[in-house]
Design a binder for these strands. Structure first.
Lengths: 202, 202
DNA sequence: TGTCTTGTTGAACCGTGATTCAAATAGGTA
DNA sequence: TACCTATTTGAATCACGGTTCAACAAGACA
């Protein structure tokens, strides 16, 4: 028998197992047994904690998004210079490669969002948070006279997030000539135009 | 009994039925019976034409992409002025709303591309064709002295396609403040920066 | 220690979707 | 007209995934 755990611990395990299972089998195509196996439990145990599987899936998506966002924040937290901060933020929004689990899950979500309002809302919320994040960097840089913004900060921020998203999809789909490095360069190229800064990585 | 049809005709019907069924139930979640019902046939008849359902799904995705691309080409075919052509092309790459069937299918495909190489290749091919399309417009405009390109044409073209894609996802996910009109404006805002043209719609 | 609560199992059950195939039938052809 | 072939049906079968639940086991606690 699998080790007995507290309700809270087990739920965390299950959320993680669901995340992994969805990445392997798709957000819609995933089965209860696959999640159970991923968690090292039987299907009955999963149902005991989540009588409605959809709740688990939503929580798993939510957790995946949260994790993705937190990681980004963490990566740029120590950087003071707005230009370096912008460069690092752009990099942190892209998958590390076609197998990147976090971004794979987000892409799954994108496909399902058209049919599922909850998923749509989750994605929309993430988008808006990322836009705010960029906007803060842009306005800080502008206030310090480092950036000369060619468009209003919300437009630039939205464009940056949109570009990350789209190149993320390209990388996940294994585009032959767009990998993480090329994507960073493409986005930076726009960012230079929009900020008037040369944005050279240190 | 459903009307008897030739092999070729029936396959076309089935491809169309599969497209509609996938939009309703997801690229992965779709069932044989749903496709059969959509086509007004029984499951046996579907299997008669497509013993392996995956082949039908791939053909349906392919047809959906082809249709999307052809529609775009058609919409801009009569326009000579590069600026107007660019504006119209941008508009034609976005969904008409959250229910837009063509784009919904492409979004489905994006989610599945991480797990399915064939789907990844389909999407990548479409991306590249769209990039070429924009590149031609940009270079024609530059050659005529109408556009003053701030980046090389491939970079601009890739950025434009990426923005279309990303805002397409936002619209499908029902972002509260980004609809087709706002998306066009956001993309045009970048296009102005990149082409040095004011790009006013006639 | 014994009891109580709670998490977990495993088997049984049910519904559903895929698959098979003999029979029926529509259309073409001689 | 009668025959032939390709298409479609509908029922039977199979496999599998979700759901239920009685029994069991692991801690918690007195």
């Amino acid at each position: 028998m699998a080790q007995r755990k507290s309700r809270a611990d087990r739920r965390m395990d299950l959320i993680d197992a669901a995340r992994r299972a969805m990445i392997q089998h798709g957000a819609e195509g995933v089965h209860l047994n696959q999640i159970a196996e991923e968690a090292g439990l039987t299907s009955g145990a999963v149902l005991y904690h989540y009588p409605d599987l959809r709740d688990l899936l939503i929580e798993a998506h939510h957790a995946g998004m949260e994790r993705f966002y937190e990681q980004r924040i963490k990566k740029v937290s120590g950087i003071a210079d707005p230009a370096q901060k912008l460069i690092t933020t752009i990099r942190s929004g892209l998958p590390e490669g076609p197998e990147d689990a976090g971004v794979r899950l987000l892409c799954e979500l994108g496909g399902a969002a058209g049919r599922n309002r909850v998923y749509g809302t989750l994605l929309t919320t993430l988008f808006d948070r990322q836009v705010s994040m960029y906007q803060t960097i842009l306005e800080t840089g502008a206030a310090q006279g480092i950036f000369t913004l060619a468009q209003n900060s919300e437009t630039i921020a939205r464009t940056l997030v949109a570009l990350e998203d789209a190149y993320g999809y390209r990388i996940i789909a294994r585009h032959h000539s767009i990998g993480p490095d090329q994507a960073v360069e493409l986005i930076l190229d726009y960012a230079r135009l929009a900020t008037g800064h040369e944005l050279r990585p240190e």
